[in-house]
Design a binder for these strands. Structure first.
Length: 464
RNA sequence: GUCCCCAUCGUCUAGUCCGGUCCAGGACACCGGCCUUUCACGCCGGCGACGCCGGUUCAAAUCCGGCUGGGGACGCCA
């Protein structure tokens, strides 16, 4: 059996967005599942809008998601001679012809056609003029005027197109640069791509591309068109729906495995399973279970998955991804074991690394900032006695583990005939400045004796 | 406008190919409860959908047709 080769061909005109990332992921998984190859190709034939920065941004995002490629990145602008060769082949065989219609004329005719309710397509003005190459001339494909092109889509099933609906698309621009529809075909052809998995929005391009394969006598690849991702209002996902760039999600504190897991389930399923490790995805991913209908991006579920992965990781694994967020907040330098301890207490209560970093504040600064309402409510005069009792007990405790701490508090509350609930909040406020935090004993354990005593004494200063 | 695609809970989806096991299952969100030193986590329970109309059939979420709704494409963008 021939080896499977898939590819992801972003155009470097912006960042890698969510939809593109899912397409890349599907291609990557498809290839990995079948033990094939995954190629990365930069489609930079839009000279005007392509930028180096975009290429970098896209590559960074691919790496962050762990979508490793086996070949490339190839750049179309470095393959111009190849396209020229095939363009010549098509002209020589009469499958392509030169056209001198100007963009302005075309635009006028398009508008007129729309106004009259006709499908705006190139009328073939230059089709039989026998023009040769020249300035301001484009090379067009001579599309068959009759017949039918059948796309047997791996995801959507058979789709029929009347060739009369297709028009003579431009293959080579007047500046000699090939257009997308031409370059993709030649690239996929010469790179031996066997399976083209791409967005739904390419369905209508497919019959045109198939005609080029046919004209070239080339082997036709398989096509699979994945439905689009929409926003809450069912319109295509865009900025106004929130973050659309993959790297924005990194900045929002998402873990790549959460995004990958979320994205793969947008359109694909494996029974009732929601959580997939990368190995499981590679094992289970097939196109058969990719749905046909568009899906809506739902931040809540992504958040849930992210929370899941945050909980599941070892605290140590979270240190590196969390560090940038800590630094950004100007926190003190702490060593990794301390940070890991703090992370452990926040894992069950953080949905993102941003939330975690924010909640970590009291661990990371010297003097906690008190929430005044909390101080008023809990650092009351009557707590002074309680603190006086607790302080020496803690002072004498050598091993600050949770069990010991619990014993100490049991003892004190017993002697004072108070419930733990009564004194927990005041101590929490003393240690964190706020009323919401991880468990008291966990905090004490992480903070350590010196800090705990210091903060409790300082808090006593705020008691009436 | 023309062509193409799609249609199960608010959202992601299972089930649809091979009609009965589905008075439709899971997950997120939401609501309630339990746990509890706060907040979470966790656990238990609840709410909630086959777009509409017709046909085929003993039987339709599943097959067929129409309608409606949504989306995509119509570039010397990709």
């Amino acid at each position: 059996m021939e080896p499977v080769i898939t590819r992801f061909p972003p155009s470097p005109t912006g960042f890698l967005h969510i939809g593109g990332a899912r397409t890349a992921l599907f291609n990557w998984l498809f290839a990995r599942h079948l033990g094939g190859k995954f190629i990365l190709r930069i489609e930079d034939t839009d000279i005007e809008r392509s930028t180096e920065a975009s290429v970098k941004a896209i590559l960074d995002a691919m790496e962050w998601l762990g979508l490793t490629w086996d070949e490339g990145p190839y750049y179309q602008t470095k393959r111009l001679d190849i396209y020229a060769e095939y363009a010549k082949k098509l002209t020589d065989t009469g499958h392509a012809y030169w056209c001198e219609c100007t963009p302005e004329e075309l635009e006028t005719r398009r508008k007129a056609a729309m106004a009259q309710g006709r499908k705006p397509k190139y009328e073939g003005t230059c089709r039989n003029l026998g023009l040769g190459p020249g300035t301001n001339r484009v090379l067009r494909f001579r599309t068959p005027e009759s017949g039918e092109t059948i796309l047997r889509d791996l995801i959507k099933g058979p789709i029929f197109f009347d060739n009369s609906e297709l028009d003579d698309l431009v293959l080579v621009r007047s500046d000699g640069i090939p257009t997308y529809n031409f370059a993709v075909v030649i690239d996929d052809l010469t790179m031996d791509v066997t399976h083209i998995i791409r967005g739904d929005d390419h369905v209508n391009n497919t019959p045109r591309q198939m005609q080029i394969y046919l004209a070239l006598g080339a082997k036709m690849p398989e096509f699979g068109h994945v439905p689009m991702i929409h926003g809450e209002d069912r319109s295509p996902l865009s900025k106004r729906h929130g973050a659309t760039s993959v790297m924005e999600y990194k900045e929002l504190g998402f873990l790549p495995e959460a995004l990958v897991n979320y994205l793969v389930r947008l359109g694909w399923s494996h029974g009732d399973q929601e959580i997939f490790s990368r190995a499981e995805l590679i094992e289970e991913f097939t196109l058969e279970h990719v749905g046909k209908s568009p899906s809506v991006f739902n931040m809540e579920k992504l958040l849930w998955l992210n929370a899941h992965y945050i909980k599941e990781k070892q605290p140590e694994e979270l240190i590196a991804p969390l560090k940038p967020f800590l630094t950004a907040r100007g926190y003190l330098e702490k060593d990794d074991s301390y940070i890991a301890g703090a992370i452990r207490t926040l894992q069950p209560r953080s949905r993102t690394l941003v939330e975690m970093a924010d909640a970590m504040r009291f661990y990371m600064i010297d003097e906690v900032d008190y929430d005044e309402a909390a101080v008023q409510k809990f650092l009351t005069h009557e707590m002074r006695d309680v603190f006086e009792r607790v302080l020496p007990e803690l002072q004498n405790l050598d091993d600050f583990n949770e069990a010991n701490l619990e014993a100490v508090f049991k003892k004190v509350t017993g002697e004072l005939n108070m419930k733990l609930g009564k004194i927990a909040q005041p101590i929490r406020v003393a240690l964190t400045g706020v009323t919401v935090s991880p468990g008291l004993f966990e905090i004490i354990d992480v903070l350590g004796k010196e800090t705990v005593l210091k903060r409790m004494r300082r808090a006593m200063g705020r008691m009436g």
